[in-house]
């Protein structure tokens, strides 16, 4: 475990039985290390999120846990079975929604489900009932005999979710379940997953690169970057782990490279993130005090402010804190210096 994840992980006393346990797992493609020494465990009934930018290794991790690719080193135990030793037992216990939408466009909703029920060996007597149930659960009962190509993106995603549940798995893996969906469909999918979690007693592991999704949906989050797990905890724990409790967003009328330095010099400011011309995100221990100081600073220099606002820290800030980058634009800010690691937290 990295220093970061250890310090903020849930307390180790009385651990609940783990649905998924990943220990020192590695994946190499030739000399390229896609996943490097990752450790985490997911408790029964949890929604666990793997958050990371493109190419972080999220899909690679999911593929190892779902027996799709061999593990290079380390081990993953899913539903009590080692993925390398008893892949078929793992497969029977899990449902998987791959990142790409793979439902058959030429088949109907029901046919898509029925073929998967057969692939999972669901007995004929239960097949019919399971299909009806999952269609109800994802709100597609009315579309049962519709051609899949006539469904919208959000409906298709829901069909895939239904497909992954048609054999009543205990653990559900979803690789970027809302990528490509509009905000309304995305929220609908979140609600659905939350409902499924309670009604079906599911443990879920989802990957995402949406901060908001990780925040709203997941009980715990692991931030992955360049194949390593850089932070792990509940959304609240993660946000608290970032030094500074508030974010001040300030927009100066006139941009000046010196702003950054001046802002960093303000007492209580832990980091400054330039966003666009004249626009800065300032992480600080005290939002109100820093706000006052920025206004005074601007006044003393004869500069004007376009806007100024105070917010709580978001997972965005957490992500920047741990990776030194923004998840949104994937740009590495060369001048940005890493704040002290949380091992040195007060």
């Amino acid at each position: 475990m990295t220093a970061a994840s250890r310090s903020i992980a849930s307390s180790p006393d009385a651990p609940p039985p783990a649905a998924i346990a990943v220990e020192h797992i590695w994946k190499r493609y030739g000399t390229f290390e896609a996943v490097k020494d990752v450790n985490f465990s997911v408790a029964e009934g949890e929604i666990f999120g793997l958050l990371g930018p493109n190419g972080a290794g999220k899909s690679t991790l999911i593929r190892m846990m779902t027996t799709l690719i061999p593990v290079t080193a380390g081990k993953a135990v899913v539903a009590g079975h080692d993925v390398s030793k008893d892949p078929d037992d793992v497969r029977r216990a899990i449902g998987v929604i791959p990142q790409a939408m793979t439902s058959d466009q030429d088949l109907t909703v029901e046919e898509n489900l029925s073929i998967y029920a057969k692939l999972y060996g669901v007995p004929r007597a239960e097949r019919e009932r399971n299909i009806a149930e999952v269609l109800e659960a994802v709100d597609l009962a009315k579309w049962r005999s519709a051609q899949t190509k006539t469904l919208s993106g959000g409906m298709r995603r829901r069909l895939e979710i239904a497909r992954g549940l048609v054999h009543n798995p205990r653990i559900f893996f979803l690789d970027e379940p809302t990528t490509g969906l509009d905000p309304v469909s995305r929220i609908a999918v979140w609600e659905m997953l939350n409902k499924l979690k309670t009604t079906r007693n599911l443990t879920m592991l989802i990957t995402t690169h949406y901060m908001e999704e990780a925040d709203k949906l997941c009980d715990r989050i692991a931030i992955v970057d360049h194949g390593t797990l850089v932070a792990l905890g509940t959304p609240v724990e993660l946000k608290n782990s970032v030094a500074g409790a508030n974010v001040v967003e300030v927009h100066f009328d006139r941009d000046d490279p010196a702003w950054r330095e001046r802002l960093e010099a303000i007492d209580g400011v832990t980091s400054v993130q330039p966003e666009s011309s004249g626009f800065y995100r300032v992480i600080t221990q005290s939002g109100s005090r820093t706000t006052m100081q920025i206004v005074e600073l601007a006044a003393s220099l004869g500069e004007t402010l376009t806007s100024l606002s105070v917010q709580n820290t978001t997972l965005d800030d957490v992500f920047i804190h741990y990776t030194g980058r923004q998840l949104r634009d994937e740009q590495v800010k060369a001048v940005f210096t890493m704040p002290p690691r949380p091992g040195a937290q007060p």
Partner: peptide
Amino acid sequence: GVHEGYLVTP
């Protein structure tokens, strides 16, 4: 990715 779907089944 259709095969990916098959390969996660038993």
